[in-house]
């Protein structure tokens, strides 16, 4: 597979490490009343879609960027690659 890195252009998938669902960016509020339940869901529950999937890839043998790659799990077609940091910022994560 080829991943089109937003900063470095097309790179071989072998340069990356795969983590999984990009929902891991959405770390819940530890102050929430039911924190244990929502953290449980955050850590253990994943969708397994047949189709578009937003997932985290780490450019370990490259610039060490975490990327959010939108990949079709049926065809491996990659429709979008974003810096995970940009995604996190756009989802309201900050400090």
């Amino acid at each position: 597979m080829i991943i089109n890195h937003p900063l470095l252009g097309p790179r071989d998938a072998a340069e990356f490490t795969y983590l999984g669902d990009a929902c891991l960016i959405e770390r819940p509020d530890p102050e929430a009343e039911n924190a244990i339940e929502v953290f449980h869901d955050y850590v253990y529950l994943r969708d397994n879609p047949a189709g578009e999937h937003r997932e985290l890839w780490f450019h370990e043998h490259g610039d060490r960027s975490w990327l959010v790659v939108t990949r079709n799990t049926l065809t491996h077609e990659i429709s979008k690659v974003e810096l995970a940091r940009d995604v996190a910022l756009s989802r309201g994560r900050g400090i």
């Binding site: 490490t17 983590l19 891991l24 960016i25 770390r27 985290l56 780490f58 370990e60 060490r64 960027s65 975490w66 810096l83 995970a84 940091r85 995604v87 996190a88 910022l89 994560r93 900050g94 400090i95």
Partner: peptide, 18 residues
């Protein structure tokens, strides 16, 4: 390696403005 990867995840994905 795993710790470095984890720290970069925390830095870029969880607290991008730190």
């Amino acid at each position: 390696l795993a710790v470095f990867r984890h720290l970069e995840f925390c830095r870029q994905c969880l607290w991008p403005n730190l």
